[in-house]
Simulated assay, not measured.
Amino acid sequence: MITDEQRAARTARAVAAAVSAGRDLGIAVTEPEVLYDVFSVIVRLAPSPVVVRVPTVLPRTTTPEAQLTDQRRELAVAAWLGEKGLPVVKPSPLVPAEPVRRDGFSMTFWELVEFVEDANLAVGYTAKLVAKLHAALRDYPGELAFLNGLDPFIPDGLAQLEGRPDLLDPADLDRARREWETLRPLLESEEAFAKAFPGVTVQPIHGDSPGYNLIVTTEGDLYSDFELVKRGPIESDLAFNGPEGIEAYNAAAEELGLREVDETVLKTIEAAGRLQMVACLSMAPELPMLVEGMKPMIDLWRASPFEG
């Protein structure tokens, strides 16, 4: 496991890289401020109205080339939604909308927004905003991968947990592998999904719980964090929202001309999501807080029926 000192040093390197890259792009930086530090270090380049996202903990399967592709997609989608008038955190207008590599990190630059701390949005409210996002994303013309983030991340993460009973019990690992072998044929491609769930449409989606990635500001709520934008079923953006969230989404979907949630697809996507959480434990050596942070989800998965 990485030590606190090693993690602090990693954060300091990320901040230094963000400051250096920002200054080279002509941004005035005198007091950089770390706003967030988990999988990414989020740095405000004060006094300039620029925020830099520097990913520091990535899956082993994410190559530099794949990361660059994902970051370009994120920037492109956020910029496109902003041009359509959707309330979204946009790429910084002060620099080119392109990822920047510096000192081993690949980073993206975003506009600064003033957020309201400790805001708590009701799931029924956020589900309606997710429906509006889906309605806008239907027309996105760019190329997106189908359900990226499941394979090879899940099988590789489970492979790394082999021989790590401190992170996952061997019996749990065996169950996770068997569940993935059940789910993989249904989700491995758009063609496989269409065969498994005939008539269930797919489209561009946020890809990472958009209802939980809304930023509440004094001027309104903004969609954010399109790092995992992809093609897939709308259920992927609604996993674990519960009955209230699904009911609210369906009501909004009817008004917007979207299809309602398919309960079988939702159950399948949630099962895959639980396995993603299990596989995330493979990243705990680089981010020890995951052991405790993932424990509630792991306990729920362990107590749930086998997804066979």
Rank of each mutant, 00 (worst) to 15 (best):
G211D: 03
G211I: 12
G211P: 00
G211K: 03
G211R: 01
G211Q: 02
G211S: 05
G211A: 10
Y212F: 05
Y212L: 12
Y212P: 13
Y212I: 10
Y212R: 13
N213V: 12
N213K: 07
N213L: 08
L214V: 06
L214Q: 05
I215D: 06
I215M: 14
I215H: 07
V216Q: 09
V216E: 13
T217E: 07
T217G: 08
T217L: 03
T217V: 04
T217C: 04
T218A: 13
T218R: 13
T218E: 11
T218K: 14
T218F: 14
T218L: 14
E219D: 14
E219R: 14
E219P: 15
E219N: 14
G220A: 12
G220T: 15
G220M: 12
D221L: 15
D221E: 11
D221I: 15
D221F: 15
L222S: 05
L222M: 05
Y223V: 06
Y223H: 07
Y223D: 00
Y223W: 12
Y223Q: 02
Y223T: 05
Y223A: 06
D225M: 02
D225S: 03
D225I: 05
D225F: 00
F226P: 08
F226M: 03
F226I: 01
E227W: 00
E227Q: 02
E227L: 03
L228W: 04
L228P: 12
L228I: 05
V229C: 08
V229T: 03
V229Y: 03
V229I: 04
K230P: 15
K230D: 11
K230Q: 11
K230F: 12
R231N: 13
R231G: 09
R231I: 08
R231E: 13
R231K: 09
R231W: 04
R231S: 09
G232S: 15
P233W: 00
P233M: 00
I234A: 09
I234G: 06
I234N: 03
I234P: 14
E235Y: 06
E235V: 15
E235H: 08
E235A: 11
E235K: 04
E235G: 09
E235P: 11
S236T: 14
S236I: 14
S236M: 09
S236Y: 15
S236H: 13
D237I: 11
D237K: 08
D237P: 15
L238K: 01
L238P: 01
L238D: 01
A239N: 06
A239F: 09
A239W: 11
F240L: 06
F240T: 02
F240P: 05
F240G: 04
G242M: 10
G242A: 10
G242C: 09
G242T: 08
P243F: 00
P243T: 01
P243N: 05
P243I: 00
E244M: 04
E244P: 02
E244D: 09
E244I: 02
E244A: 08
E244T: 05
